[in-house]
Amino acid sequence: MLSCKDVTHLASESRDRELGAMERMGMHMHLWICKGCRRFTQHMELLGQAMRMAGKEPERIGDPDARLSQEAGDRIRSALQRRLNGGGTQD
């Protein structure tokens, strides 16, 4: 019988790789009888959903007021300009 600790590993890894048939079965049997681990998988699901949402709306995560500094902007601008002017002609 899998322990809760084992199941947390499987529940986490199921989000990153395909579990084997035995792993899946062991996990589901455990979840059937363990409320704590059922809650754990719900928490993982919410976390995943929140991050997916933030991937589409990044202003939800981090500093919404963060701006490229003037210096960084200038540096990027001149790098782009150099590439536009000096980059080899392909045609």
């Binding site: 919404p64 490229l68 790098a79």
Partner: peptide, 28 residues
Amino acid sequence: HGNYLYRYALAMARNEEIAEDAVQECLL
């Protein structure tokens, strides 16, 4: 898109230098 890309990169990298670097390489 500069500030948008920067915030996105900053959220992932958690480092201003890396984020600026990534935005530059992205546009190039």
